[in-house]
């Protein structure tokens, strides 16, 4: 729980910094995208911390390329 609060606090601090800095520089789109990525990252970090079933890109890639790499792996491992 402490970790979740820490992540959230850090995210709020960094989000505020991004908001202020890019507000001064008049970069609304940069501000929007940076905060968007920050939001995803924070949600992901909290999800990982609470052991929620967050998607793991490694498993996604494994699933996606399974038909290509399975024959290659079996060719490599044969006779070893």
């Amino acid at each position: 729980m402490l970790a979740v609060i820490g992540i959230a606090l850090l995210a709020v601090v960094i989000g505020t910094l991004i908001w202020i800095r890019n507000g001064i520089k008049k970069r609304p789109r940069e501000r929007m995208w940076a905060l968007f990525i920050l939001l995803i990252g924070t949600a992901y970090a909290i999800g990982v911390q609470l052991r929620l079933p967050v998607p793991n890109p490694v498993d996604g890639v494994t699933f996606l390329f399974k038909p290509i790499y399975t024959p290659i792996i079996s060719w490599i491992e044969e006779g070893s």
Binding site: E30, I37, L38, G41, Y44, A45
Partner: peptide, 24 residues
């Protein structure tokens, strides 16, 4: 995204990287 600078994105991306690397 046609932004004018990449710098605001660096810290948010690292927020995504650390948990990604932990569950990878």
């Amino acid at each position: 995204l046609n932004l004018t600078t990449y710098r605001p994105l660096v810290v948010p991306y690292s927020f995504l990287l650390v948990p990604l690397s932990m569950i990878a």
